[in-house]
Simulated scan of single mutants.
Amino acid sequence: MELTVTPAALDCFRQEWAFGDGEHIRVFVRYITEGDPPFAFGITRDTPSDAALTTVAGSLTFFMERKDVWFLQGNRLTIDCLGEDIVFQLL
């Protein structure tokens, strides 16, 4: 499992979302619909309590808690930016 944040996404978090140096951003799995797949990623400011996956980009720390990494299934998650939107690519 790997978590990567692109430079474009880092700029978006700083410029559009107003995240500052030293902040922690939790990536989590959320239920969205009964479609296929019924889950998606979400993000929020948070403090790690049981982080299983962590990466530092710039001076921001991105992490996933142990209860959410099941969704990666050993894959790599890349967080990118398209326009002003954060996008998640599971590879």
Rank of each mutant, 00 (worst) to 15 (best):
T47R: 14
H24D: 09
F28G: 00
E23T: 14
T54F: 01
A18T: 10
A57T: 08
C12P: 13
V87T: 15
A52G: 14
E16I: 07
T61S: 14
A57V: 05
L10N: 11
R76M: 09
T6V: 08
F88Q: 08
F13W: 13
T33K: 14
G74Y: 01
A57I: 06
P37F: 10
G22I: 03
Q15R: 13
F88M: 08
L82K: 13
F71A: 12
A9Q: 05
T33R: 10
R45W: 02
L82R: 14
L53D: 05
E2S: 13
P37E: 05
T47N: 09
A51C: 02
T33H: 14
P38Y: 03
Q73S: 09
G35R: 06
G42Y: 14
G42E: 09
T47F: 12
H24T: 04
D46R: 00
G83T: 02
F88Y: 11
I32Y: 06
L91C: 13
I86S: 03
F28N: 04
R76N: 10
L3I: 13
D50A: 15
F71P: 03
D80A: 08
C81I: 01
E16L: 11
D36W: 07
A9N: 07
Q15S: 15
C81R: 10
D21T: 13
T44C: 02
T47K: 15
G35T: 00
T6D: 05
L90Y: 05
T47I: 14
N75K: 12
R26W: 15
R76W: 01
M1G: 06
F13Y: 12
G42A: 11
V87L: 03
T78F: 01
F71G: 07
Q73H: 03
I32V: 11
C81A: 11
V27A: 08
D85F: 15
A8G: 05
I25H: 02
A8S: 09
A52P: 02
V27N: 09
G22Y: 10
F39N: 13
F41D: 03
D80P: 01
W70M: 07
K67L: 07
F28W: 06
L77H: 10
T4D: 05
G74I: 00
D11K: 08
T54G: 00
V56F: 03
P38W: 01
L10G: 07
G83P: 04
P48W: 05
P48R: 07
T47E: 15
V87P: 03
A18C: 13
I86K: 02
R14I: 12
R45V: 00
A9S: 08
V29I: 08
